[in-house]
Simulated scan of single mutants.
Amino acid sequence: MSDTYEQIRQVRLHEPERIGELARRRSTRPIARDDGRLLLIAADHPARGALRVGSDSTAMGDRYDLLDRLAIALSCPGVDGLLATPDIVEDLLIMGVLDDKVIAGSMNRAGLPGAVFELDDRVTAYTPGALSRSGLDFGKVLLRIDLQDPDTARTLETVGRLVSESAALQLPIMIEPFMSRRRNGVVVNELTADAMVQAVSIAAGLGDTSAYTWLKLPVVPDMEKVMAATTLPVLLLGGDPDSGADDIYRAWEDALVLPGVRGVVAGRRLLYPENGRVADAVATAAGIVHSATPAVAR
């Protein structure tokens, strides 16, 4: 891959304008194909300073290793696309591995883990206009709601504006909502069905239309109750990378049959599997996502 990475460095040095051209000229596809399912590989972690995988606190900080893993994952049958921030999307565009893929651009967040301003989740990456100009397919934004933190009001207003701006451009936007609170100074998300129903209900009502709104949700106990709270399309979070793979895959299988669940967005779980075999982990995930038979909606 050394020649490929030298090409990236040369384009960034001498031809930065070419990056936008590559984005606009890439071959595209419908967001959902015949089975209505999506498997997206997530790589938006580095931009929020979340580099840890297992015991390695800077595993995702090696950009070349991460790009190697992403190139393998994106080449696997059944992988529909990518969720990432502009820097990673642009590296992969130069590498030529994003043709015929769905690209979800992360709007990222200012509220970095552990910061005193952690819940002040302002947009720091893609905007709806930038996504549209680049010919990308989705926007993604986090929404953490802490009823005891005044920064939540600003976050709600920001996400509502992003939903409206995206819809005006006919650009789908994924909201990843949580009810959150500080516990001993650390922000934690409430991963119960009741908390997720509350978060989903708040998220779905943001913006001047929900026509282009999707949700990105964790799998929690009593997931049927969560999915009964919304008619919006839902993609599942990949799950805790420190949990056992079998448990995660079983949770996906159970949730994917629920009405409204359209697929999975997974990152470290697939890019850094315990056995190191990225292609095998991705193949397993793709088989689960694209073989699931949804239940009949009520």
Rank of each mutant, 00 (worst) to 15 (best):
V123M: 14
H290Q: 10
Y64L: 03
Y249L: 13
L83K: 10
L237H: 11
I19N: 08
V116Q: 07
V226C: 08
P172M: 12
A115E: 10
L74Q: 08
A193Y: 02
A50H: 05
Y212A: 05
R122V: 10
L82Q: 12
P113S: 09
D149V: 00
G239N: 10
I288E: 02
G207Q: 08
Y272R: 02
A211E: 13
D149R: 02
E224V: 12
I8Y: 02
G160H: 13
R277C: 13
V97E: 07
R109T: 15
A125C: 09
I145F: 00
I288S: 02
R9M: 05
D137S: 13
D246I: 13
V11D: 02
R24K: 15
G20T: 03
D87V: 10
R9F: 02
R144P: 01
A283Y: 00
Y64F: 11
P177K: 09
V265N: 08
D3H: 09
A228Q: 14
V89S: 06
D68G: 05
L171R: 11
T293I: 14
W214E: 06
R18A: 15
M196V: 06
L169M: 11
L67R: 13
E176V: 10
G78P: 07
E253P: 00
S27E: 12
D247M: 06
P259V: 09
